[in-house]
Amino acid sequence: PEMDEILEKLGVSLYRSPNDVEEFRDGKVDFIGLNVYCREYVTDWHGGELAVSANNKGGSSKKVEGKCIAPLFESARDSNVPRNKWGREILPSCMYSTIMDVHERYDAPRIFITENGHGAYEQPDADGMIHDDDRIELLGQFIEHMMRAKRDGARVEGYYLWSTMDLYSWINGYEKRYGLVHIDFENNLERTPKKSWYWYRDLISKYQEQEG
């Protein structure tokens, strides 16, 4: 019924087979993959045109991520939640709420976190090390909320951090860094583990010991 209401608002016709309800009810999937970075905080549509905005200027811009999906909803801003340089909410607890929503809504299929990470502008110090403490703090919170969901019954069976190495970002090219390993794009792609790489290595070892 909810989908029918949305299709009517959009003025879209969707082919329906006579027994589609039964087919969807009987359908099974092996797992559900979730890319978790932030929540989608929205309010009622206020009459704007269809639009999607993204900040590709980082700290030099006041622009925030958002969208207007006419005539259904549009992005809202919670002044109580901090945002990063690209206008994205910093709210690690969304990991827990996202997993638990899927767990409860779809009767706990196997769940894999197929993407989760933190982008930042970074420069090595005099010794060539990147002390990305903000990444360590944020990822640690994300992972703890994931483990809390697992303790509360969600079948979380995998976590894939984005990313192992610095790479191209469609928002900020090579300036925005996501990796645990720094890539020197100006010096033969030289690779140097960041502080977060050692932290993540030790975190994996800790959980492996706990799991036996």
Results as ranks from 00 to 15, higher is better:
42 V>I: 08
139 L>C: 03
32 I>Y: 00
138 L>R: 15
126 A>C: 05
92 P>W: 09
91 L>F: 12
129 M>G: 02
168 Y>P: 07
104 E>G: 07
111 I>M: 03
109 P>T: 06
93 S>I: 14
77 R>A: 02
131 H>Y: 13
46 H>Y: 09
53 S>C: 06
96 Y>L: 09
146 M>T: 13
73 F>C: 12
40 E>G: 01
62 K>Y: 02
90 I>Y: 09
54 A>F: 00
155 R>C: 08
66 G>W: 04
57 K>P: 01
77 R>N: 00
63 K>N: 03
162 W>Q: 03
92 P>A: 12
43 T>S: 14
108 A>D: 15
69 I>K: 01
30 D>Y: 00
42 V>Q: 00
87 G>I: 02
51 A>Y: 00
175 E>G: 14
65 E>Q: 09
65 E>D: 08
61 S>I: 03
157 E>Q: 15
59 G>H: 10
174 Y>C: 09
123 Q>C: 01
140 G>K: 01
74 E>L: 06
158 G>E: 07
71 P>N: 12
144 E>K: 11
102 V>I: 14
160 Y>A: 07
114 T>N: 08
83 R>A: 10
119 G>N: 07
137 E>K: 06
115 E>N: 10
99 I>E: 07
61 S>K: 13
138 L>E: 06
153 G>M: 04
45 W>S: 04
104 E>H: 15
79 S>D: 11
94 C>Q: 04
121 Y>A: 06
155 R>H: 08
164 T>K: 07
126 A>R: 10
67 K>I: 11
136 I>Q: 01
34 L>H: 05
70 A>H: 04
57 K>D: 08
177 R>M: 10
50 L>F: 10
76 A>Y: 07
49 E>W: 04
50 L>N: 15
176 K>A: 05
173 G>P: 02
86 W>P: 01
44 D>R: 12
166 D>Q: 14
49 E>H: 13
174 Y>K: 00
148 R>S: 12
53 S>W: 12
61 S>P: 02
47 G>L: 07
172 N>H: 09
89 E>C: 03
94 C>H: 14
119 G>E: 06
148 R>W: 11
137 E>W: 07
125 D>S: 08
63 K>Y: 08
161 L>R: 06
174 Y>L: 02
94 C>A: 04
176 K>T: 05
149 A>W: 02
151 R>N: 15
38 C>Q: 12
129 M>Y: 12
98 T>C: 14
44 D>H: 13
30 D>A: 04
154 A>P: 05
80 N>V: 08
44 D>Y: 08
57 K>M: 13
67 K>D: 10
143 I>F: 11
134 D>C: 02
163 S>C: 15
127 D>E: 15
161 L>S: 09
152 D>K: 09
49 E>A: 12
97 S>D: 13
165 M>E: 11
135 R>W: 08
70 A>E: 00
96 Y>D: 03
70 A>M: 09
115 E>R: 11
91 L>T: 06
